[in-house]
Amino acid sequence: MRRFCSHMALNAKMSFKDKSSLFWSFIYPILLLTLMVIAFSGVQTEQKPIAVAVEPGHPFADVFRQIKMLDVKDVNGDEAFTLLRDKDIDGIYRVDGVLLVRGSGVNETILREIGSELTKVSSVYAAGRSLDFTKRYVERGDQKEGMLYVTLSASLGMFALYGYFSGVLIVHHMQANLSPLAARLSTTPISRISYVTAGLVSGVAMSSLQTIGLLFYLKWVWKVDYLADPWRTLLLVLAASFFGIAIGLFIGASNKWPLKAKVPLGVALMLLLSAASGMMGPPMRLFIENKLPWLNRYNPVNMISRTIYRLNVIGSTTEFTENILILFIAGVVLCVASLLFMRKRQFKSL
């Protein structure tokens, strides 16, 4: 037990004293999350009033000016066409009742919807009926489903797996054919199980601490609350950290690639998985969801990011237990497989 504690203390000290490890565990995630929040928070997801030109003499010209969703520009003729082509306005309500646009998008659809509604209103009044504009017909329920939430949860999913690097390092301290230090340690009466377990425990603690730190950072600094359900979130973070380290152990032990190859591989792999989960914008995630749904179902970053979002934004525990179990069982399987790889103690070459 004393040795176990000394292995744990060693791993913890190493993590805190290694600048590179500190950078990837703390500085880089904070940098990236800050960039994302700055880039995507605030105005960007909010539907801004749509800039539009109305040709003089249009029957609904005055009504358009009263609609909050529209930003009517007082231009006409060639000037309006220039603005449309420069994308400074999204459409022109022509006097002949036609809406002129540059493409097919949500803004153009809303412009058509507003124009159509006014046409319909005229028809209703022409038919001798009236519309009640004072009455509320629907309640609006909001769901924070902006790009910011998708990208942030995907990034958190990625960072939760950064225990990968600890996992790789543990193996490189233990497998004699991977580093001179490991060769030296292999000549001592060190218990592999004890060292790996200690590394695993301290790695899970460090990685979880890092993810929880990020959650608090988002909550306190940027008011993005991913800690609405703290206990379940903590459990998820622990399972994710364990799984991350287990992948690191597996990739570390299953081949003889040097550390400087395994680290960029991990960075790139995590980026790929988080991109599939929506870190680089929702379209890629949608593409994967539509074309390769099984991939994202078992994409660990997506599993973690979805669950973080569900627990804390929509208060749902759907797939929570299932995802925790998948991460935990897969982690155990990877750990066992890694130990099998590491069982070999005499090597053909060092």
Binding site: T45, E46, Q47, M69, V106, N107, T109, I110, E113, I114, E117, R136, Y137, V138, E139, R140, G141, D142, Q143, K144, E145, G146
Partner: peptide, 20 residues
Amino acid sequence: LPVVLADQKSGAGYYAGAMA
């Protein structure tokens, strides 16, 4: 009243509510 659930800040949310 029926509830329109959507990201109300987005264009799609506005459109969904306006249609209803």
